[in-house]
Simulated scan of single mutants.
Amino acid sequence: MKQNGAHASIKVKGRNIDLDEALPSKVQEGLMHVAGSHFGSLNHATVGFGRDGHSYSCTINLQVGTLKMMIAEAVAGDCDQAFDQALGKIGRQLHRRRQRMEDRFKDQASVSATA
């Protein structure tokens, strides 16, 4: 897995809550794994946590390669669950984006091969 810089600019922020020490490292490992498994490089990411009544929200803003910024949000009973759900959404977005790119390249290759 390729990394840009030492830890590819991942910012973790908490709004109206204190984040424990384990959560930022979990966020960093999770984002690097998901981005690396689909595109190999992570340009930058911002992860925000907030508390809304009895639930916690997580918002992930992520950019890989030259793709547009991707955003995923989730609400759950604790910060870890909210992050896991938002990370799953980002993973699905990356997977779909990669599939579309591969399909486009296959279509272009078949068109140029028949021409």
Rank of each mutant, 00 (worst) to 15 (best):
N4F: 03
G5W: 01
A6G: 11
H7Q: 12
S9E: 13
K11R: 14
K11I: 06
V12R: 14
N16E: 02
I17R: 13
D18F: 05
L19C: 04
D20Y: 02
E21D: 15
A22D: 13
L23E: 12
L23R: 10
P24E: 03
E29N: 05
G30F: 03
M32Q: 13
H33G: 03
H33M: 02
A35E: 00
A35D: 05
G36D: 01
H38T: 03
F39K: 05
G40L: 03
S41N: 08
N43R: 06
G50F: 00
G53R: 15
H54P: 08
S55H: 12
Y56G: 02
S57E: 13
C58M: 11
I60D: 00
I60R: 01
Q63I: 04
G65I: 02
G65V: 00
G65S: 13
T66I: 05
K68R: 15
M69Y: 08
M70G: 09
I71R: 11
D80A: 12
F83C: 08
F83A: 06
F83N: 09
D84C: 07
D84H: 00
D84Q: 09
Q85M: 12
A86C: 00
L87D: 11
L87G: 12
G88C: 11
K89S: 07
K89A: 06
K89T: 02
I90A: 11
I90S: 12
L94T: 00
R100E: 04
E102M: 02
R104Y: 00
F105T: 03
F105D: 11
K106V: 08
Q108I: 03
S110V: 05
V111Q: 13
S112H: 06
S112C: 07
A113E: 03
A113F: 00
A115C: 05
